[in-house]
């Protein structure tokens, strides 16, 4: 029975893996992922421990690139937090850190492009007007009021359409370890063992 010592332990090991794959399918471990996006005039933060396990009541702190504290709050039952977008210089970044209990922390940095700093609400109408005007020569002329109204309608409609996409991105970001990674990791460990064993046996032969 003992002639092949690792055969039984490998059997045990594969039973363990089987059991883990059965029990753990949807819920995976302790990597705290944070994702944030701009929605309307707000920044939405979403924090999770992977597949549908939101960080409830996680402490959120928002800082500028230079480390100045802008906002502090807690996530709700869905792991979300919404706060008004702070006024920032054009090239300003924001670092959002979420702490989910002792030892667990994750962060997400929003670049100027993510924040849409270049298109601050106050400047936008003027820029847009100049962009639209050449094209509007051929179309029935619109008054300035109508143009403003139209551009507001369009930006609202686009925001509404894009919102679910952003939420979908957020969900993608929080995916836990994939099966490929799990199998890959096991492969590495067993492979390293095999390599070490081969090396040791070669040394013995000499």
């Amino acid at each position: 029975m003992n002639s092949c010592p690792f055969l039984l332990s490998s059997k045990l090991f594969f039973l363990l893996i089987l059991w883990i794959l059965i029990t753990s399918a949807p819920a995976l471990a302790h990597h705290l992922s944070v994702f944030a996006y701009v929605s309307g005039g707000d920044i939405v933060v979403q924090a999770s421990f992977g597949h549908n396990r939101p960080v409830k009541g996680g402490e959120v702190s928002v800082k500028t690139g230079a480390g100045k504290l802008l906002f502090q709050g807690k996530t709700d039952g869905r792991g979300m937090l919404r706060f008004p977008r702070p006024q920032l210089p054009k090239n300003g970044t924001v670092k959002i850190t979420v702490s989910g209990g002792p030892g667990h922390q994750g962060s997400w940095t929003m670049t100027p492009a993510d924040l849409g700093n270049g298109m601050a609400e106050t400047e936008a109408p003027a820029e847009r007007k100049s962009a639209i005007q050449p094209a509007s020569h051929s179309s029935p002329a619109l008054s300035e009021e109508e143009q403003k109204y139209l551009s507001r309608l369009i930006s609202e409609a686009v925001a509404r359409e894009i919102e679910p996409l952003k939420a979908m991105m957020a969900r993608q970001m929080e995916s836990g370890p994939s099966l490929q990674n799990i199998i890959g990791g096991i492969g590495w460990l067993v492979g390293l063992g095999g390599l070490a064993a081969a090396w040791a046996s070669r040394k013995k032969q000499r």
């Binding site: 690792f6 883990i20 029990t23 819920a27 471990a29 096991i186 460990l189 040791a200």
Partner: peptide, 23 residues
Amino acid sequence: TDHIIETSLLSSAFFVASLAHIP
């Protein structure tokens, strides 16, 4: 040298154990 394989298998067991969540 005779126990390299056991060591690597137990290492793998530890590696995957963290994925087993129990509510």
